[in-house]
Design a protein around this nucleic acid. Structure first.
Lengths: 105, 105
DNA sequence: CGGGTACGTAACCACAAGGGTACATAGAAG
DNA sequence: CTTCTATGTACCCTTGTGGTTACGTACCCG
């Protein structure tokens, strides 16, 4: 969990995930899409790998990275107890609005 | 969004949110619950405040912090496009299991 | 085997983050 | 108005993080 949220904190890494969301990509491909040099990308990929957010597959001399979306369920679960709270608030807001409408009639 | 995920990356800050989930608390109260000194807590609180994750209310010389769970909807929304993916995977897994059962019969 | 390609790792550097101590400030209390 | 309480800010230091260049390595191709 910790590692996942840590990994998500960096915008470059989030961009990588976004790319991988549409298709698996090689390290070079990802590097080309980012404003940073290849070694930097390599390290970011390591972080993502260690957080379980991506999988690597070797294809000749290329490394193909693929998204492992299940890892994000951790975040979803962490969010869970808060979800109830914000939904209550939204419900309350809607009730408020509804009441407002009534009273304005 | 960026600020929110950034804020969530730190475990101490997540602990604070967890505490605030059950009840609003003063800065000192939060500091007492954490292994770090009050000034550090103050700084963490600023980060949370700037990310919109908490609200402050002044009560005499105390500052009462309250959770603002709506801020987390940003994370929920960010998660959204990935959610579809991991659910597909889980569905596929279930299908796979179901098929396996059948074949094993 | 020699060379090109695709990566990762090592070494290095600059700066942001997080922790601590000391101090400033605002408000209650006397 | 002085003092105590609660909290934030300034400053300093150490560590972590992200980026770069240089280098090592694995693999295909001729």
């Amino acid at each position: 969990m910790d590692e996942v949220l840590q990994a998500l904190a960096d915008p470059s890494r989030r961009t990588m995930l976004e790319i991988l969301r549409s298709h698996p990509a090689s390290a070079g491909e990802l590097a080309a899409a980012l404003p940073i040099a290849r070694p930097g990308v390599s390290r970011h990929l390591r972080v993502l790998r260690e957080a379980g957010l991506v999988d690597v597959r070797q294809d000749a001399q290329r490394r193909i990275y693929a998204l492992r979306p299940e890892a994000l369920t951790e975040v979803d679960q962490w969010l869970e107890p808060y979800r109830a709270l914000w939904q209550n608030r939204l419900d309350a807001l809607h009730t408020e609005i509804a009441r407002g409408k009534k009273e304005r009639k």
